[in-house]
Nucleic acid binder design. Structure first.
Length: 793
DNA sequence: GTTAGCAGCGTTTTT
DNA sequence: CGCTGCTAAC
């Protein structure tokens, strides 16, 4: 019997209503007491549609969690009858935590709190057969997806220059975001050009089905399809989910919107929380229209505005409002605060990106020590928010040199690293040997003497007999279709997969040991052990970490499931660190001190965004600026550079138009101090001069060439410093980047200390450190030891 | 079949 | 500039 028939089988069906009632009786609804009137209204309006328009920092998560607690406490719903949707796993976790705290108990047993994607998987597993999948379908990541598309494109003999897989993936993604199946892609989308796209889309979907796989978009789309075509299934969920809550509603796309509307249309008990000013995922298909349309879709909806801000100082709020007010078509909110004045938003220009990084690094340290006239602020409370991830490198470089600890949030992710993905492919094969994509990834990794030809033979064999690649390989081996040395290794590989697969089904077999066995027997670990490149040890470490991560799960399946959805890397490191992240990743976070570098036209607002989406794109960029500024609690510093390296070419930059939109009364223009003082210091008087904006006062190119910074650059280039002018230490530090080292030199690194150069490879030095052993270091991160001796750190 | 070396391309943002 | 992916030589 299908366990999904009545009565509802949710994990916590027995979740105790009395639990919350007990809490109620003891102290009546304490969670309501510290809400302001608007929040309280939003919490108490339990029935019918509610739209909560919550500006930045207005306590929206608090209201949302209080609402959940209220639903539970009043006995309106049991924990498993509330569907709470967030966008990120982080947000879901946070909410679970806070609900638990408010209830005063552990709030396990909110099984339907999660992201659109994780909830969809849960539903889809149960009804997979309705869309032609088996319940154990795999979820492809972007990499697999691209490889698949590339195969399809090649199979059709289409010029992959004109049809790059990336582009097709984007197209398909866009369609899925709009809930369009291959059959329903409108012909207006299908110019002669796109017909090919639609056809490829159809082929791709077929291929996914044969592979028993889905991509990210499918998770939602399949659910919507099921809801639409199977009213009985839909009705069941409508009955189960008696109350629906949605966070970050402004970021929902059409497909997600349909998903929600289908589930909510029976009872209309849906509460959406959002802020149209923080809609920054238009490029991913998000429709601000969803939030604007809410009242139409759900007649009689209550609209509640949260406008009191608890996060930022008035200057920061005013600066943010100033910028965002340039956008048209907003629902409109007026944020206000009781907080005291505080510091103005600071603005500073720099000569180039490196100097910007250098200045910010010093500023962070100064603020940390409290030498700026404010109370010291720890590194954990400071953040750098960039528009695009490539901007991070400058900061990483700089912070590495000065030994300032930092963490990159949402950077190159653990589960996206090659070695992790390889290992996972092995696990996938063990769990489901018919996983062809996993097979392809690792048949010849480590090298097993199976080149393109052998692999193509396997493909052909498998396809013509309707077999999985693994079985295809077997059958080919049996037929003697594989040449000498490859054959034995391939046989060993196939046998291995079979053995591991059996092991996964054996009770009592520890999945952790199994994972180790797999990596060992396959020769994968050995491959890295024999690898003498400098990255190899790090990769082995990562593999160890991967195995360690398995401890939190009770099977390989469970782990794979988790990983395919949860791509974030939550290493809770204890040490104080500055955070570096993109503006997108920063949404929902807050920091006492925030740096906003790279405010230059073309970079921010991004040229591409404006080219592709025109005014709409620009407005989204502006919202991004708004999000950035409103992350700051006490101090925000905007900066820009007049020169930046783009693709290795120097390019001169104009300050961002958003800078002109910052209301002058709330901005303090800093004149950069110190030796390398910004060539753009000249822009400062113009900005503050009262008549109009900095726009008219922008420094022309000619002025730049006259600026002190430019002249200094010229001088610097004239005096390659290898002969050390010791009297000017601070200059020398900066210039060691260009000096040459030879084997035997004593050097100093801010993190690893003193050491001796043992070999040189291009710009990389092999160094034997006195304390920390052998390391390969890029030359510019070290300085001659005798120089270091003279610098007081 | 594997490896090294070069050409060409790209950098928004992510579940 | 740095990476991927293709081609030419081992």
């Amino acid at each position: 019997m299908n366990p999904w028939d009545e009565p509802d089988p949710f994990e916590t069906a027995a979740a105790p209503v009395p639990l919350s009632q007990r809490a109620m009786a003891a102290r009546p609804a304490p969670y309501l007491d510290d809400l302001n009137p608007a929040q309280r209204a939003a919490v108490e309006a339990l029935d019918g549609p509610v739209l909560m328009l919550a500006g930045a920092g207005t306590g929206k998560t608090k209201a949302l969690t209080a609402r959940i607690v209220h639903l539970l406490s009043t006995g309106r719903a049991r924990p498993n009858e509330i569907l709470a949707v967030t966008f990120t796993n982080k947000a879901a976790r946070e909410m679970k935590l806070r609900v638990g705290r408010m209830l005063g108990e552990v709030a396990e047993g909110m099984p339907w709190m999660g992201t659109f994607h994780s909830l969809s998987v849960k539903i889809l597993r149960r009804h997979a057969e309705l869309v032609g999948l088996k319940p154990n379908f795999t979820i492809l990541d972007t990499d697999d997806q691209l490889r698949l598309l590339k195969q399809l494109i090649q199979a059709r003999n289409i010029d992959d220059k004109r049809w790059p897989a990336r582009m097709l993936a984007g197209l398909i993604d866009g369609w899925k975001n709009r809930a369009l199946t291959p059959a329903s892609v409108p012909s207006s989308d299908g110019s002669a050009y796109n017909n090919v796209g639609t056809e490829l889309y159809a082929e791709y979907q077929d291929r996914l089905r044969t592979l028993n796989a889905t991509d990210f978009g499918d998770l939602l789309l399949h659910c919507v399809q099921i809801f639409k075509t199977h009213p009985d299934v839909l009705a069941q969920y409508q009955r189960w989910f008696r109350y629906i809550l949605v966070d970050e509603y402004q970021d929902t796309n059409v497909c997600q919107y349909l998903w929600l509307r289908l589930l909510a249309q029976a009872h209309h008990n849906i509460c959406c929380v959002g802020d149209d000013d923080q809609s920054i995922y238009g490029w991913r298909g998000a429709e601000v229209g969803n939030i604007l349309r809410f009242e139409k879709d759900f007649p009689g909806a209550q609209v509640i505005r949260l406008e009191q801000n608890y996060r930022s100082t008035p200057h920061i709020l005013a600066a943010a409002s100033g910028v965002i007010s340039a956008n048209a078509g907003r629902l409109g909110k007026t944020l206000w605060t009781e907080a005291r004045e505080g510091e103005k938003v600071r603005l500073i220009g720099h000569w180039d990106g490196e100097e910007e990084a250098r200045w910010i690094g010093e500023e962070i340290e100064a603020i940390q020590r409290g030498t700026r006239g404010w109370a010291p602020v720890g590194l954990d409370d400071q953040a750098i928010l960039v528009r695009a991830s490539h901007q991070m490198r400058a900061f990483e470089d700089r912070f590495l040199t000065i030994g300032l600890p930092y963490r990159v949030i949402g950077g190159p992710r653990f589960y996206e690293r090659a070695e992790i993905r390889d290992a996972m492919a092995y696990f996938r094969l063990a769990v489901s040997p018919e996983d062809d994509l996993a097979f392809e990834r690792v048949v010849n990794l480590p090298k097993r003497g199976l080149g393109d030809k052998a692999q193509a033979d396997i493909q052909r064999e498998a396809r013509s007999n309707g077999l999985s690649l693994l079985d295809g390989a077997r059958s080919l081996l049996a037929a003697g279709g594989i040449g000498g040395k490859g054959a034995n290794q391939l046989r060993a590989f196939c046998d291995g997969v079979e053995r591991w697969h059996h092991a996964t089904r054996q009770d009592g077999q520890s999945h952790i040991e199994l994972a180790e066995v797999i990596l060992d027997e396959s020769g994968y670990t050995g491959m890295w052990q024999n690898d003498k490149t400098p990255e190899a040890p790090g990769r082995l470490d990562n593999l160890k970490e991967l195995v360690k991560a398995l401890e939190q799960f009770d099977s390989l399946q469970g782990f794979l499931e988790h990983v395919s959805l949860i791509m974030d890397n939550e290493n809770e490191e204890a040490a104080e660190k500055v955070s570096i992240m993109t503006l997108h990743a920063a949404k929902g976070l807050e920091f006492p001190v925030v740096f906003l570098p790279g405010w230059e036209d073309g970079l921010f607002p991004s040229q591409r965004s404006m080219d592709e989406s025109g005014l709409k794109g620009l407005e989204e960029e502006r919202r991004l600026a708004y999000v950035g500024i409103t992350r700051a609690e006490r101090l925000a510093t905007v900066s820009f550079a007049s020169n930046r390296r783009v693709y290795g070419q120097w390019q001169s930059q104009m300050p961002s138009r958003f800078i002109d939109e910052l209301p002058q009364a709330h901005v303090e223009v800093l004149t950069p101090p110190g030796l390398m003082g910004g060539g753009y210091g000249a822009a400062a008087p113009g900005f503050g001069s009262g008549h109009g904006s900095a726009l008219e006062e922008r420094v022309s190119k000619a002025d730049v060439y006259n600026s002190p910074g430019w002249r200094r650059l010229q001088e610097r280039q004239g005096m390659r410093p290898v002969s050390q002018p010791r009297e000017a230490k601070n200059v020398v530090i900066d210039l060691t980047a260009d000096s040459a080292y030879s084997v035997g030199d004593r050097v100093f690194h801010t993190k690893f200390g003193y050491g001796k150069v043992t070999a040189i490879e291009g710009d990389k030095l092999d160094i034997r450190f006195d304390k920390t052993g052998d390391k390969k270091i890029v030359a510019r991160f070290v300085m001659p030891a005798d120089l270091a001796d003279e610098i007081p750190f």
